[in-house]
């Protein structure tokens, strides 16, 4: 975790953020292109195995886990990521975050303790190059729910 800067929001801010973004319809996700830009399942698969003992096919794409991050990063060194879920706190064990093409694709894992009130986590991560970010929600009954979104990391130019 040493490479990453934390930006922990209060539970109140977290709640209002989750209320607002829950209004975004599923259509938004459906509009995304089928193949995620920068996808590298071989590299991701290895990291999943190392960190979670799982393979990519073990992950269940689910609307119960919600991933919020920009589509184009202002800076790859500092990409805000929010992961949240409408599931009851008691059903959620942890969230794990990966990005396919990072030197180490495993970005972080957060385990929720008894003091947690809502399955929400916000932080900033470093993304090395254009690739999908994966939010994986581990449920209390041992399922791994997946949400994915690519983020473009670009040198920029041209207005």
């Amino acid at each position: 975790m040493d490479r990453r800067k934390f930006l922990k929001k209060s539970v109140g801010a977290a709640l209002s953020a989750s209320l607002a973004s829950s209004l975004v319809p599923a259509l938004a996700q459906a509009a995304a292109p089928a193949a995620l830009e920068g996808e590298d399942l071989a590299k991701l698969g290895k990291a999943l195995k190392d960190a979670l003992g799982k393979e990519f096919k073990d992950l269940l794409p689910s609307t119960d886990v919600k991933l919020v991050l920009p589509t184009i990063a202002e800076s790859g060194a500092n990409v805000p990521v929010e992961i949240e879920s409408a599931l009851a706190m008691s059903q959620v064990k942890a969230v794990h975050c990966f990005s396919d093409k990072n030197p180490n694709p495993h970005l972080f894992s957060v385990f929720f303790g008894p003091a947690s009130t809502t399955p929400y986590y916000a932080t900033r991560v470093r993304i090395a190059e254009t690739a999908p970010v994966r939010a994986i929600l581990e449920t209390a009954d041992g399922k791994f729910l997946l949400a994915s979104q690519s983020v473009r990391v670009t040198v920029g130019g041209c207005g």
Partner: peptide, 8 residues
């Protein structure tokens, strides 16, 4: 996907 176009 226009959400991935930076413009220009």
């Amino acid at each position: 996907d226009p959400f991935y176009q930076q413009g220009g």
